[in-house]
């Protein structure tokens, strides 16, 4: 899947998790990263038609080729990730009463 880098410091600040230990922060960020990839994969799957999905699956054994294919299909893929990340953060903020 597309390698999207999250701004870890910003997320910690945004979620007001500075009082968590470094390990707890890292764990939380990892979970967010996993969730983000999970969501992105769903979003991409939903956007691809069956033929495109087949092509992507065939390419997925090669990380670089799969990423290149996604970038070709979705030039704005970084924005897609950013949108999903924003949604995750928003949901977490609500749950955390921030």
């Amino acid at each position: 899947m597309f390698d999207y880098r999250i701004n870890e410091d910003a997320i910690i600040r945004e979620l007001n998790l500075t009082d968590l230990s470094p390990g707890e922060q890292a764990s939380t960020l990892n979970l967010i990263r996993t969730l983000l990839q999970d969501r992105a994969s769903i979003r991409i799957e939903l956007a691809l038609n069956s033929d495109e999905l087949t092509t992507f699956n065939e390419l997925s054994t090669n990380q670089a080729a799969a990423e290149a294919y996604l970038l070709q299909k979705f030039p704005n893929i970084a924005n897609m990730y950013a949108d999903e990340l924003a949604m995750i953060i928003a949901q977490l903020k609500i749950a955390l009463n921030i």
Binding site: N16, L17, D19, L20, E24, S27, T28, N30, L31, I32, T34, L35, D38, I88, Q91, L92, A95, L96
Partner: peptide
């Protein structure tokens, strides 16, 4: 409280069933 909320929504890291316990998953 924060840790509880995070675990509820995201599951627990290292838990192979995290995607079944975290509400967002």
């Amino acid at each position: 409280r924060k840790l509880v909320v995070i675990e509820q929504l995201l599951g627990k890291e290292g838990d192979p069933d995290a995607n079944q316990t975290g509400e967002l998953f």
